[in-house]
Design a protein around this nucleic acid. Structure first.
Length: 111
DNA sequence: GGTCTGACCGGCG
DNA sequence: ACGCCGGCCAGAC
């Protein structure tokens, strides 16, 4: 923690990678778990770099509305929905069905 | 070295 | 109920 080598980006990657199959999380939830709180925007920013640099299941990360806001940033707009449905998550028009049911809160599960 | 933007969230009018 | 605004951090021009 003292070392600055520790980047908050890495934290996001870790948490996102910890998201179980068939579950989705929200930017705000991750941000809060990391302690960033209001900096939920940065989580999405980290995701952008993450999916480009590392293999991060960014498709399991949606906004608090359960809307696939970042689907447009994927290789293909339908890639996100396709993957989610493949994992058993029902997605309707870029919106996760039963969002609260499949929602996975790190601060709640990992605490 | 300063400025702007960005896959968000929460509060207020 | 809907729309607008401010806030936080980090990277890119």
């Amino acid at each position: 923690m003292k070392n600055k080598t520790y980047s908050f980006f890495d934290d996001v990657y870790e948490v996102v990678k910890l998201i179980p199959c068939g579950r989705v999380s929200s930017y705000g939830a991750i941000a809060r778990y990391l302690g960033t709180g209001l900096s939920a925007r940065m989580v999405g920013w980290a995701m952008n770099a993450a999916h480009t640099h590392k293999k991060i299941p960014a498709h399991r990360v949606v906004n608090r509305n359960g809307l696939l806001t970042g689907k447009h940033h994927f290789e293909t707009p339908s890639a996100m929905k396709n993957r989610l449905e493949k994992e058993g998550i029902r997605v309707k028009k870029d919106q996760v069905q039963d969002f609260k049911n499949v929602f996975w809160d790190p601060a709640l599960e990992l605490s």
